[in-house]
Write a protein that binds this DNA or RNA. Structure first.
Lengths: 301, 301
DNA sequence: CACACTTACGATATTCGTAAGGATT
DNA sequence: AATCCTTACGAATATCGTAAGTGTG
């Protein structure tokens, strides 16, 4: 007994005619006849009663028809679903991203992805950088977008998207707000607004400054980048954020100025769990991310 | 995609090894390899990740494994059930029988059937003769055992089992109780106990007597043959029943004596719905019935 | 080198379509 | 005679097993 035979039987059971059924399933009528014969031999008895003028089901045939209908439907649904999965006409991809990325570039990336694959669902986990790593490692998500801290650079499954140079965020009207660049020492003459720990951005800033022997005095801190931006634009002080967030900060009404001495920089990239191969939708999302940054890089050069 | 390929995939998914899986499903390992390859081509992408040392499932492979497990289980169950149906290792037969048969020979027949086919369930409908015919005609039961009234002899789907000559039932100690035979006129000198209408037995007795110009005066009547028998054995009167019921009447303590002038007789037989072929269990029951009566006929000759 | 999967290839089995046969209306 | 299913048979396709190939630990 095989699926072809069962489908042949179902077609005959529905039409009660070998001739019609054979057209329905696109085989010749003798081929159908043979398929039914073999099916009957396989199960050990008659399923159909053929008189020269009419075809009907035996009691056992009726049983098989009832059971078979569900099975064939499920089979076809499964087959179609598998094809859809590979054609990206169905499916889901789960992505974790650190807040500074989730709030800045990610919506654009998702819009691009969604435009290209309109029926693939995207599950975003907006979590701190450390948890992004953890979620990828544990398999809760397939992709994670985060900064790769310079120290732990040899985790495999990290693909660099771009190098990010941190920039200062300064209120409009502040003495430094129209400068081409500012130095840390100039910046720290104003009150400093930082992200609350634990935060990768906060950590990178602190580490760079402490390496350079500069002391950071944090006047205000907040969990949300948007709050930091708003505080700056209201003149409460200055801050430093990844270049990722330039647009966001400007929209919040603050000025953005590059910093030097020392620069704070970090690699932005995609994490994947190397022991699992990416699903088709995850690979597609990965490609969209890569393309997004390669296009951006080209436009900048 | 076909069932063989799916089963091959399930085996690999379970063992995570082509070599082991191939042993499990009794094909060579290259044949398995090819089956998986073809399955992957059919669905349009990779289901398994093969490194030289380990096999694992892709995300899509996991989906197929989950869906496929149910489907394969249901398939195997269906296949086995169909085979069991034809091997009479599963199934049911529904039989209608008129009360005089249901209460006399039927238990023996069922015991024989059950001994031969211990797992086939038997559904008995103990109904009056007219309803036996109706239940077969409407398909509620596959077989009906009843008398075929002489008038409507050309209903097809009737197979004669035996000719039944009605006998008189007489209390022990009654003047006629030790006779070889009795005539109707002798019998009707005593009070007559009959089955209540509607009853095929009652109808046959009345018809025969009225054809012979004999008037029947019914003193008592009852629905149940057992009650009639008990009433006779308690000396309330005499009755006439099908020869089928001889044993039952004797067990109830009455004497049974053949009658003549005129004899009442009728064909006992099996009704089937000619437009439906019998199911395997119904055919088996039919055969048991036929054998039961051919053996009985032989033993009497 | 050993192990595990893939590819190559000839043999076997299955399935197919065309043509002919048989039975019923 | 027309219709419908079955049988016959050669061709095409699929599947199989053996043997050789490939890549990794």
């Amino acid at each position: 007994m095989n699926m072809r035979q069962l489908k042949a039987f179902m077609a005959v059971a529905q039409t009660l005619s070998f001739a019609e059924a054979s057209k329905k399933i696109f085989i010749s009528q003798p081929a159908l006849s043979l398929a039914i014969k073999n099916l009957e031999e396989s199960v050990g008895g008659r399923l159909l009663i053929r008189t020269t003028r009419a075809v009907s089901l035996t009691a056992e045939g009726k049983t098989l028809y009832e059971k078979g209908r569900r099975l064939v439907d499920e089979w076809d649904a499964m087959e179609e679903e598998m094809r859809q999965l590979f054609r990206l006409e169905r499916g889901m991809v789960s992505v974790a991203a650190m807040p500074s990325f989730a709030a800045s570039q990610l919506p654009e990336v998702i819009a691009l992805f969604r435009h290209k694959y309109p029926v693939i669902n995207v599950q975003i986990h907006d979590v701190i950088a450390e948890e992004t790593v953890e979620m990828v490692r544990s398999g809760k998500v397939e992709l994670g977008v985060t900064f790769m801290p310079p120290g732990m650079a040899d985790i495999d499954g990290f693909t660099k998207l771009a190098r990010d140079e941190f920039v200062s965020v300064i209120p409009v009207g502040h003495p430094l707000s129209n400068r081409e660049t500012v130095s840390w020492s100039e910046l720290l003459e104003s009150d400093f607004i930082a992200l609350q720990r634990p935060s990768m951005v906060r950590m990178l800033v602190e580490k760079t400054l402490s390496d350079a022997g500069i002391e950071l005095d944090v006047t205000f801190d907040s969990h949300q980048l948007a709050t930091v931006g708003r505080m700056v634009s209201n003149g409460l002080g200055v801050s430093v954020v990844p270049a990722l967030c330039v647009q966001q900060m400007e929209q919040l009404g603050a000025k953005v100025v590059p910093i030097h001495s020392p620069t704070v920089s970090c690699d932005l990239g995609v994490l994947t769990n190397q022991k699992d191969q990416l699903s088709v939708p995850a690979q597609a999302m990965f490609d969209v991310l890569m393309k997004f940054y390669s296009v951006n890089a080209n436009s900048e050069s």
